[in-house]
Write a protein that binds this DNA or RNA. Sequence first.
RNA 1: GUGGCUGUAGUUCAGUUGGUUAGAACGCCGGAUUGUGAUUCCGGAGGUCGGGGGUUCAAAUCCCCUCAGUCACCCCA
Length: 447
Amino acid sequence: MPAKIQPRTLKGFRDYPPAKMIPREWIIETARRVYRSYGFSPIDTPALEYLEILTGKGSAETDKQLYRFEDHGGRQVGMRFDLTVPLARFVAQHIQELGTPFKRYQIANVWRGENTQRGRYREFMQCDFDTIGTTSLSADIEMVLVINDLLSTLEVGEFTIHINHRGVLNGLLEKLDLADKATDVLRTLDKLTKIGEEKVRRELTETVGATDAQAEQLLDLSSLEGSNEKMLDEAEKLIAGNEVGELGIAGLRELIASVSATLPPQATDRIRFEPSICRGLDYYTGIVLETTLNDLPEIGSVASGGRYDNLANLYTNQKLPGVGASLGLDRLLAALEELGRLEQVQTTAEVFIPFFAAERRNDYLQLAAQLRAAGIGVEFFPDAKKLGKQLQYANRRGFRIALILGGDEFAAGECQVKDLATGDSQTVSLAEDAKAVIAEIRRVLGN
RNA sequence: GUGGCUGUAGUUCAGUUGGUUAGAACGCCGGAUUGUGAUUCCGGAGGUCGGGGGUUCAAAUCCCCUCAGUCACCCCA
């Protein structure tokens, strides 16, 4: 016999057994439902793109992480490393038929050949939603509302949506004559909450090359504290006289006012002006936001996004502004797991039918079919094993209810509906397409 | 990509200064009653000690390489 091939998965790539996949699908379905409730439509794009599509945007960093190869026809191709670049290509190619504003969501895997870490993989899923083709603040507001709906529905506890405007930062950079070092400065400031003020100050002066006075002003802005109103007032003073910055402040004020008018006060309190965040990506030009969980801030942002002026300028002359955000699926799952909010369920049906009377297979199948017709998920065990074994199986998988029928029950036209959580059992009639069984199941399930 | 730590059964881990056939718990399969599952009792399967090479009479244990995980940097979701 030849040696067996060792079963294994590639570094940074994962298997998802049912216990992992069931909560995963629950989050994805929730995201899908919320996105759709705002009129976002689904799209998908190929995993592979022409290399030039992906490298056009790419910084040296994303270029290094790109999975690339020559396909069987000699074409240079690459695997998408995010969903934004494919979206840009997609709208550049199809915007004529789609029309604007175009609202889309896309939930799909992306690949990056970077080093792995907890919560960081080489294959991971992004859950993006974007509104393309409008500069209206309505689209920005919607982005906040969607994130609020999503995280409220997922019951991850309280959360904070940190917002900023790139104009505020860019305004100050212009004023300080640091515009040419913008990328480095922003990247450093973004670390403020992570590494602290002193380290940021040192990095700004020593690595980035800012003067002490410049660093001081940048930190003055970044470390503002107090209510949103107070912080905005003070930020306004710091960037006074700079048009870009003043427009940014005005945009933030308007956004906060609109959200306050739309959401109840406790939801409005989730919004915090945070002058240090900027999102590493340099294509953002307006509002940027990140979302952290109050119980688990160290896990990082679980939903982030922002506004960009010109999504597709690499592929078309048509100007396509937009705003969008992405849900951090893996981080959310890690958070839910850590907060103990994931039920350990390995079944997708709630009702289990043990195969007990070996000669009555068709009767069991008929009952299962009647329940499914009533919208109840049913699993019928394939082997007529000992009842205890079958109930053990049902219990470990997390079934809610077992229907126990043996020769005695079939003879009497009855069925035991057993609540697996409590062990209680009710005997009901099988007559009239199992009407009474269905009613009892619904009662136990509580709906 | 750079550096630190880790790798023993499906899982969590023992395994002495290198020393015979590498252990436990939980899980899995079967049995203790062909009719009732988180408890009990008995039995069973399951390990190339991540992989390869080296040192040695002898390696899970020491050395090198490699693969994987993890942490920091980098970057970001």
